[in-house]
């Protein structure tokens, strides 16, 4: 491993890597959006996020393999199901067992992640499964790199989901209620907001975001029970980098991490390139735990 002399590449190669990093980053942003929403409102780090993504990926896969439903059409089924699952999980398990203490909540979500991951291993075995779609070889040629339609759909999806979340939070009554609970729980309770219901709805929306991510990822990623673990680490990094609770932060953080990962792979090699993600994670936690767009204290 040559640490001192990094290889030099033509600007086309570097630009190509950066552009493919944007597409990769949009995937990370999609996963991170739900995580940052849940953190922003409930102030909990949802360790089960990756496991929920994996579960949604299996749902998309089985809808396709058993009923022949296209992954993008599956959005109509998986997203509402994700909302219901998330709402039930928060009200039935997380809220009930964690007594409102942060460390306990973290551990409860870890327990749920262990259950879901091993449940999937028990039920579906460790075999990788992937949806096959007819359109995953066509796409747009950017000259320096090539993007297939599913990647472009994921990029568009991440922008749409960010915009939709922002509109929902700022333009609807439910969004205002969620913001109120996030800012001042006791005060929101006093003006008659059902806080437990809001927590459930928030977690449900977070899970619905995961479901959107699963549908958009299914054409390009194979799913196995360990699938979520990889993404959850990256999603934490994105959320911490962007600032916990910030949608724009999640989007920008996603792109930055995606680009950094691709350039890291280019310059440091496939394996060591991944160190850039852990390094960013550690450095941001140490030096700027509020992230790029986060608010101080919280």
């Amino acid at each position: 491993m040559d640490f001192l002399g990094l290889p030099s590449y033509s600007w086309e190669t570097v630009l190509g890597s950066a552009i493919s990093g944007v597409f990769l980053g949009s995937v990370y942003a999609l996963v991170a959006l739900g995580l940052t929403l849940i953190y922003g409102v409930l102030h909990i780090i949802n360790f089960a996020h990756g496991a929920m993504l994996m579960l949604a990926m299996y749902a998309v896969f089985f809808l396709w393999s058993a009923l022949g439903i296209d992954p993008y059409l599956a959005l109509l089924i998986v997203v509402p199901a994700g909302f219901v699952f998330g709402y039930a999980l928060q009200r039935g398990v997380i809220g009930r067992f964690s007594h409102g203490r942060d460390e306990i909540t973290l551990l409860v979500t870890l327990g749920i992640a262990i259950m879901i991951e091993n449940g999937a291993l028990f039920a579906f075995s460790a075999t990788e499964r992937q949806v096959q779609v007819p359109y995953d070889f066509d796409g747009i040629d950017f000259g320096v790199t090539f993007a297939v339609w599913p990647e472009i759909a994921a990029l568009a999806g991440s922008l749409v989901v960010t915009l939709a979340l922002w509109l929902f939070m700022t333009r609807t009554d439910m969004g205002h209620a969620i913001q109120a609970v996030a800012k001042e729980r006791r005060g929101a309770e006093l003006v008659g907001i059902d806080v437990e219901h809001i927590y459930g709805v928030t977690f449900g929306i977070g899970a619905a975001c995961v479901a959107v991510a699963a549908c958009l990822l299914a054409p390009t990623y194979a799913v196995s029970p360990q699938f979520g673990y990889l993404f959850v680490l990256i999603a934490f990094t994105v959320v911490v980098l962007g600032g916990m609770g910030s949608f724009v932060g999640a989007l920008v953080g996603g792109f930055l991490i995606g680009i950094t990962e691709q350039l890291g792979r280019l310059y440091l090699g496939e394996s060591l390139g991944l160190i850039t993600i852990s390094a960013i994670f550690i450095l941001v936690l140490l030096f700027r735990p509020t992230g790029l767009f986060g608010q101080a204290s919280g």
């Binding site: 909990i44 460390e103 973290l106 680490l233 160190i275 852990s278 390094a279 550690i282 936690l285 140490l286």
Partner: peptide
């Protein structure tokens, strides 16, 4: 030193374990 507590400490330990895993995979020599 940087005052990480609670969930933040949990996250940074996780990040270190992952960083060591990547290093152990990568520094083959």
């Amino acid at each position: 030193r940087y005052g990480l507590r609670g969930s933040y400490f949990a996250l940074i330990t996780l990040a270190f374990a992952e960083a060591f895993r990547v290093l152990a995979r990568s520094i083959v020599s």
